[in-house]
Amino acid sequence: MVLGQLGGSISRALQQMSNATIIDEKALNECLNEITRALLQADVQFKLVRDMQTNIKKIVNLEDLAAGHNKRRIIQQAIFNELCKMLDPGKPSFTPKKGKTSIIMFVGLQGSGKTTTCTKYAYYHQKKGWKPALVCADTFRAGAFDQLKQNATKAKIPFYGSYMESDPVKIAAEGVERFKKENCDLIIVDTSGRHKQEAALFEEMRQVSEATKPDLIIFVMDGSIGQAAFDQAQAFKKIVSVGAVIVTKMDGHAKGGGALSAVAATKSPVIFLGTGEHMDEFEVFDVKPFVSRLLGMGDWSGFMDK
């Protein structure tokens, strides 16, 4: 499923190179071109792909490799490392602790899946014995509060919002205050969709963040997004301190390469994937097993933890 086709193309490219009798410049280039193509088809940002190609070439300097070195293995390792580097910002995200109040704010582009994912995130933790609560700080989208309310009711999670109040900052602050008093340990704040081209929307996001002091801000991204992913994700990160990414709609055919761009742009790890419209269609995400799954090759495990 997830990025699976991309993995298939990459392993095929590596396989082809392994079949070549001698690994020279030409064989390496062909292999890298195939991989580049697969990454571009998966919507990884163009510049990231080009940089990766250059890096691998630098690492795998064929002339410098003394005879006797296993070139194939060195190339494979370089590719694996570069992919991990793209998906792994190096530091884990903030992890909330059960029983201790954490405030989590969800942000992202319009229609990316924030409201749906807020409920999934709450439901996931509720099943593990947490006391989550949902705050609807989207006063802009028609029916936003009804959507959150219906989701929360279905999942039996307390919620806060208003049909009358139009200031999302005020609602967010009130909601967080209320649920702190009620001793909820996971207070989740849903916000309106927004984009970098509208400064007023970004300013509103900054104010909601300032008013609620979230422990973690999650950037929610649609898995089918194309080349605009990097710039948008980076712009969000500039205004608020995004600390994690959730990629949604991975039940579709999209290969989710935009996720790699968002990780690079926000320097934050992907923590969950959305895999459907229902509350329980939600998967924990872990980089290394993911990349080896992505490459569809068993023996990659040998490269891990190096």
Binding site: R141, A142, G143, A144, F145, D146, Q147, L148, K149, Q150, N151, K154, E277
Partner: peptide, 16 residues
């Protein structure tokens, strides 16, 4: 008739 809030969303637009 499936997604939460979908009917209310349209209702709001219709009213406005």
């Amino acid at each position: 008739t499936f997604r939460s809030g979908a009917v209310e969303q349209l209702k709001t637009h219709a009213r406005r």
